[in-house]
């Protein structure tokens, strides 16, 4: 026995009268499921107006937010991966890199650019998570190194926007050494008395957390970003019980003393600009 009855007919629009909805016109927040037009979402810097979920951004999108009038010069654009280990798992490494390059239109997992932020010169290295998980390999290490050289040449502060799963396995020992390489460059930057801002965005884990991401003169993050050395799944396996709520999120990391502050995306440019002025004394 049914307890409700359809009083009207179902869909009555004839196929010919149906309107097509173009793909990608709408954005559905993965956290609260609110639907909003793509334009409004972009206007809101890719932050959900309802639940404040910060969508992951690309290097270009961060450059657009940070640099005055979206004007900046990219450096070391042409660097790409070699295959020093002849690494072959289910696919040879060069083939994997090439496929990813074609899919993403990127050369590697980081871009480095310099420009002005509220009138202050800044060199920014920003990662792209969609390129093999933003993994740290020789190219990323070298690009950051050149970014630091540029900062020293321009006598400018330096900023890294981290968004990475950690070291790139296909470069094995060499990728591990990039942690030391970048630290050596940061040491030179420090000797030049130039500020280093580390901006940890969702997610920042593994070898990136265990090296330059944690070494900022100031360490900052976005709301709810995952920041970890060992990822939550590994920690859960190690301890054999569920993790506390909010574990390894930016707020948790701030509370434990490893971040200076968390910044909403809408305030990012202002807060970076303000900090740059502070460093000048």
């Amino acid at each position: 026995m049914v307890w409700f009855k359809r009083s009207k007919d179902g869909i009555t629009t004839s196929t010919a009268d149906k309107k097509e909805t173009p793909e990608g016109l709408w954005y559905k927040c993965p956290t609260c499921k609110t639907v909003i037009s793509r334009d409004d979402h972009a206007e809101n810097l890719y932050v959900c107006a309802t639940c404040n979920h910060h969508e992951r951004l690309s290097s270009d999108e961060y450059f657009a937010i940070l640099f005055d009038e979206d004007k900046y010069t990219e450096i070391a654009k042409g660097l790409y991966s070699a295959d020093p280990l002849k690494f072959n798992d289910t696919k040879p490494y060069p083939a994997r890199v090439k496929a990813t390059q074609e899919k993403t239109g990127l050369k590697d997992a980081i871009k480095v650019a310099h420009g002005k932020v509220n009138g202050e010169t800044l060199v920014v290295a920003a990662m792209d998570f969609k390129f093999i998980g933003g993994s740290l390999g020789s190219v990323m290490g070298e690009k950051i190194a050149r970014g630091i050289d540029k900062a020293i040449a321009l006598k400018s502060p330096f900023m890294i926007i981290s968004k990475s799963g950690g070291a790139r396995m296909m470069e094995a020992g060499l990728s591990l050494m990039q942690m030391a390489k970048v630290s050596a460059k940061l040491s030179q930057l420090s000797d030049a008395k130039l500020p280093y801002i580390s901006f940890l965005t969702d997610p920042t884990t593994g070898g990136v957390t265990a090296s330059f991401a944690m070494l900022g003169d100031i360490n900052i993050s976005e709301p709810n970003a995952l920041i970890a050395f060992a990822g939550p799944r590994i920690v859960k396996e190690t301890i054999g019980r569920d993790l506390p709520k909010g574990f390894q999120k930016a707020e948790f990391v701030l509370e434990h003393g490893f971040l200076d502050f968390i910044v909403e995306r809408k305030d990012l440019k202002e807060k970076i600009g303000q900090s740059l002025v502070m460093f000048k004394g």
Partner: peptide
Amino acid sequence: GAFPGLEAEERGQGEAIARNIY
């Protein structure tokens, strides 16, 4: 490897290693 435990994360395993390298 460095221990991937809960307290290790709370007390900043990543920061500790990073600081040492530097």
